[in-house]
Structures are given as structure tokens and as C-alpha cells.
Design a protein around this nucleic acid. Structure first.
Lengths: 150, 150
DNA sequence: TCATGAAAGATGTATATGCAATTAAATTTG
DNA sequence: CAAATTTAATTGCATATACATCTTTCATGA
């Protein structure tokens, strides 16, 4: 009985949490990117716009924290959205702070993307089944907690 | 009773399979990168070397397939490893094919990285617990199957 | 008040990712 | 056998990711 051996002598794609996450993320992102393509945005951009649509104007730092994204990554990820004028950046009274919000064109492209998202999303949810799906979200939340506790 | 509602009206970071995967992967990769830093390699590079160490010389296309990585991504990801001479690329009789293998220096840096990997890996395995850990790997395998079936 | 330190973002550099299109080599087919 | 097709890998372009470092602005305390 050695079915749940946890740290084998050999590091192995089959057990490495990071390698498994990265591989799955690559493939899943390809699927979401392809599905969202007719709307003209990528998976990351869809997520970023959804957050703004759901939560309203946010401080850039809170936005990064919520996305679990490094601040410098967020700075750069804002650029494609800005160029397409899907978001706007306002200054706060505190001149260091930037406030990010979705624009009307941003909301329109998001609305156009939602049905496409729903299709690809339900493909994965159905394929996983309720149990594995809930398990996945739970496990991902746990890994987030572990990483954030570092 | 609506605890397992699967496709809400609003796309939401809290349910999007892709967004959750990407966010968790960002944070987990940061942890693995930091842990492996003393050995001088990144999480992706560690994975790529591990695969070569475990499976021996591989055709580049098989290598990409195994990693669930687009061929063009693999082409570029080989470059940092080549520059550091951790891998070598040989030609096949079929002149289109490239055969990738790990070098002695590559094996040495990998050996140095393994204990570091073991530490960070066990941190996540312990934090998840046996059940969630197995569930995570299972669910990731399922998402891979779904994405590959496209 | 002003020096000091902390907080918020941006920049330099490097890696990671993949689609569209291309090049080169092998295979199939007329 | 020659043309057409398929296969393997690379290149052009764009996005995604983050560490180290820098600039700007604010808060704080002697």
C-alpha cells in the first residue's frame, strides 16, 4: 500500500504541484483564449474586466492584491486595456494612488464576451463534474492561502 | 439549496476555472521560484530538466506534447537552458527532428535544486492534506483531458 | 520644519506563453 | 519521378509574469 506516497525520491511532473498547475493552466488558458477570440480579448483581460465590472473603481494596489498579481505585472497588463480604451485611470487626492475603472466600451466588449465565456466555462464544469469542480476550487483556494502565508 | 450553482449570471473570479487556475499558478510559481533561486533556476526550468532527467533524450515535439506546451513556446524556453549549457540539441536521421537531452552540468544543477524543490513541495502537500492534494492532481488531470479533447 | 522612512507606481531586464506565418525536410500521390 | 501534402521546427508579433531598482508622494517624528 503506497498509493498516497507524497514526496518521492525523484521530482516528477506527476507529483509537482507547480508543474501540474502550470501545465493545466497553459492548456486551459488556450481553450479560454480560443473561445473568447471572437470578442477580441484574452482570458486574462476578460478576468481583469470582470473584476472591475463586479467591484467598480478600485485602487490599483487593491486590484493587484485581489488578482493575486504582482504590482509590476498589473502595471503592464493595464496597457493593452488602456490602448483599447476599455479602462480608465484616474488620480486620487493622494497623488501616489491610481484608481482603475471599466469604461463603456470596456463594458460592451465584456458583455459580448460573457456568452462565449459561459460556453467554455460550462464545458469544463460539466467535464469535471460537481464534485471534482468544487474540489478543484477548494484546493486552489488552499494553495493560495499557503502561498500568501509565506 | 443553491450551494453548488454552476454557471451564475455574472462571470466571477470565484467560479471561473481559468481565472482561478491562473491566479493560483501565479502565486505558487512565485513560491517555487523563490525556493529554487539558490540553485539558479526557475520553476519552469526545473520542470523541463526533471523531465529530461527522468525520460532521457526526447524528440522536441514529444517533449512539448508531454509538457502540454505549445511547440513555439518550447523552442523559446530551450534557449535559456542552452545558453547555460544545461541541455544539448542533436539532429536525428530525419533532418527535421531535434533530439533534446540534459547535459552533465544540467544534471548537476538539477541535483542541487532537488532538495530545495522537496522543501517547497512538501510545504504545499502538507498544507493541502492528502485528500485535497490527491483531489487537486485528479482535477488537473481531468482539465487536461478536457482541454486536449477540444 | 525638515529629515527620514514608508507607500504606490513605473522602469529595466529576463523569462514564459502562443497564434499566424514561414522554412525545411519527408511522405504521399498522380 | 514530380507535384502536392504533411510534418518539424523557427520567426514575427503581442501579451503575461515578476524581481530589483528607481521616482514620486505622503506620513512621522525629533
Amino acid at each position: 500500500m503506497n498509493a498516497t506516497r507524497q514526496t518521492p525520491d525523484r521530482p516528477d511532473l506527476n507529483v509537482c504541484v507547480c508543474a501540474n498547475l502550470r501545465r493545466a493552466t497553459r492548456m486551459v488558458t488556450q481553450a479560454y483564449d480560443a473561445a473568447l477570440k471572437p470578442a477580441g480579448l484574452r482570458a486574462t483581460q476578460f478576468t481583469m474586466l470582470s473584476v472591475l465590472a463586479g467591484r467598480g473603481r478600485m485602487r490599483q494596489s487593491d486590484y493587484a492584491e485581489f488578482l493575486g498579481m504582482d504590482g509590476t505585472t498589473l502595471t503592464r497588463n493595464l496597457q493593452p486595456l488602456l490602448k483599447k480604451q476599455w479602462i480608465r485611470i484616474d488620480r486620487d487626492d493622494d497623488k501616489r494612488v491610481r484608481l482603475i475603472s471599466i469604461t463603456r466600451p470596456g463594458q460592451r466588449v465584456l458583455d459580448k464576451a460573457v456568452p462565449l465565456w459561459r460556453t467554455v466555462q460550462s464545458q469544463f464544469v460539466k467535464g469535471l463534474g460537481t464534485e471534482q469542480w468544487a474540489g478543484l476550487l477548494g484546493a486552489l483556494a488552499t494553495t493560495l492561502d499557503i502561498a500568501r502565508a509565506d
